[in-house]
């Protein structure tokens, strides 16, 4: 029972982290129709910038400045790259972001090298917040939860209570009408892209010390972010939140419980083959849940796309 609570907290941290990435991505998608493959690369840039800044000014300045730099870079990419490619259609746009992801990874390796960066948790947060049945919950995790929830609330406030948010929301559903009303939609696009990438940057800053800061970190998270927003429904902020938490908990619980498939197979009436080594299905018999945990989201995504192409909360087709 205690372990379930601990896993709930761990899954929440993973899910909220995922949410910070998917929130920006889903906003960008719903406005511009672009699936930004380079989104996780901005997350990586956030971590690297924050690491570099933390060397000189400490962690907190990194948390403050790095996302800003990432956001400005993101806006620049939109202004000088995407906007140009936009005229060719959606597929070249997507392919552009795909190429950008490759390029950013190469640039990061060129600038910082290929090793793990010793980017660490700030001293003030290096203590155990509390413990549940011997399982310590580091204070940093609590900090991560607060940051992500804070961002979610701020995002929700801006989108629903401010003028800018209204325009964005309107542009989500009726971009042409909004343009006809005289709003500078390209500027809104650039702003949303910048804010979305900045959010990814924040996620990178706070995830870098716990999940590692290395050139492969974007690739590791890249496709799962897509999976999240597709499951949640493209363009839906609430969908992104629900799907992020769902995936966070699924992967956490799948990793936490060693359920063997042999047990399940035997429970439903199959008998274990006598000589396992010669059986063509031997891998199925030795399979455990943690082995397939990280690919469960993909399975879920394929199922959802086949059964409900608009995702859990989406209003329109993906």
């Amino acid at each position: 029972m205690d372990l379930i609570l601990v896993n709930l907290i761990d899954g929440l941290v993973t899910g909220l982290l995922l949410f910070m990435l998917s929130a920006g991505l889903t906003l960008i998608f719903s406005m511009m129709g672009v699936l930004n493959f380079a989104h996780a690369s901005f997350y990586m840039l956030g971590a690297y910038f924050a690491f570099q800044i933390s060397l000189f000014f400490g962690f907190w300045m990194g948390l403050l400045i790095a996302p800003l730099i990432v956001g400005v870079l993101g806006a620049g990419v939109e202004r000088y790259g995407l906007r140009r490619v936009h005229q060719y259609g959606h597929v070249p746009e997507l392919i552009f972001t795909f190429g950008l992801a490759l390029l950013i990874e190469e640039l990061v390796q060129f600038l910082w090298g290929k090793n793990q960066m010793p980017y660490d948790i700030p001293e003030v947060l290096q203590f155990t917040a509390f413990a549940i049945a011997g399982n310590s919950i580091p204070a940093y995790k609590i900090f991560m939860i607060f940051v992500s929830v804070g961002i979610f609330i701020a995002l929700l406030y801006i989108l629903t209570r401010t003028r800018v948010g209204m325009i964005i929301q309107a542009a989500l559903s009726y971009p042409r009408t909004v343009e006809a009303l005289g709003h500078n939609v390209p500027l809104v696009f650039m702003g949303v892209f910048g804010v979305g990438t900045a959010l990814a940057g924040v996620a990178g800053v706070i995830a870098g010390p716990v999940l590692g800061t290395f050139p492969g970190m974007a690739f590791l998270l890249g496709s799962i972010v897509f999976v999240t927003i597709v499951i949640g429904g493209l363009g839906s902020l609430w969908g992104a939140l629900v799907a992020s938490l769902l995936i966070g908990w699924i992967t956490t619980f799948a990793a936490a419980y060693n359920i063997a498939f042999a047990d399940i197979l035997m429970a439903i009436g199959f008998t274990m083959p006598e000589d396992l080594d010669d059986s063509a299905l031997r891998d199925l018999w030795t399979l455990t849940l943690p082995q397939i945990g990280p690919i469960l989201p993909y399975l879920l995504m394929v199922l959802i796309l086949v059964l409900r192409p608009q995702g859990l909360f989406g209003k329109r087709d993906a």
Binding site: I292, Y298, V302, L305
Partner: peptide, 23 residues
């Protein structure tokens, strides 16, 4: 996008199977 995402999911699933299904 639906096709693209299904292809991504199926691709990832089969690639992951290649490590799991050793036989």
């Amino acid at each position: 996008t639906v096709f693209a995402m299904i292809s991504l999911g199926v691709g990832e699933l089969i690639a992951a199977c290649s490590i799991i299904i050793v036989a």
